[in-house]
């Protein structure tokens, strides 16, 4: 009992002048830093956003014009050979598996 009441009594003691000074100084520094950062963010100088802002402008759009020359493959078939299937059907595999090639958009 005695120890508990003594502890309560200590907690009610007013803070010392040094402790008060430390608290006020910490608070003042915090508010000063907060104001500084708010000013920088408001003026668009947020260092966290600077890198993204620099990356945002897209490069001017370029139109790529490539000339592609046709490659002809001439196949001589015997007169009684059956007609060749369409090129697209030769590229299909009926069995399933895990993807190893990119999808292709083409005329069908």
């Amino acid at each position: 009992m005695t120890d508990r009441s003594a502890g309560r009594g200590r907690s009610r003691e007013p803070l010392s002048r040094a402790a008060l000074c430390a608290i006020w100084a910490t608070l003042a520094i915090f508010l000063a830093l907060l104001a500084l950062m708010a000013t920088r963010v408001a003026s668009g100088e947020d260092p966290a956003l600077r890198a993204r802002a620099a990356a945002t402008p897209l490069p001017p759009r370029r139109v790529l014009v490539r000339r592609i020359y046709e490659r002809r493959v001439i196949v001589h078939l015997p007169p009684d050979a059956p007609p060749q299937p369409a090129q697209a059907s030769q590229q299909v595999s009926a069995s399933g598996g895990y993807a190893s090639s990119l999808p292709v958009t083409r005329t069908s």
Partner: peptide, 17 residues
């Protein structure tokens, strides 16, 4: 990975991934 299968339908190659 994507499961990948192809077959012939609608007069074309159909592929599901």
């Amino acid at each position: 990975p994507l499961y990948d299968t192809s077959f012939r339908s609608m007069g074309s190659d159909v592929r599901l991934m």
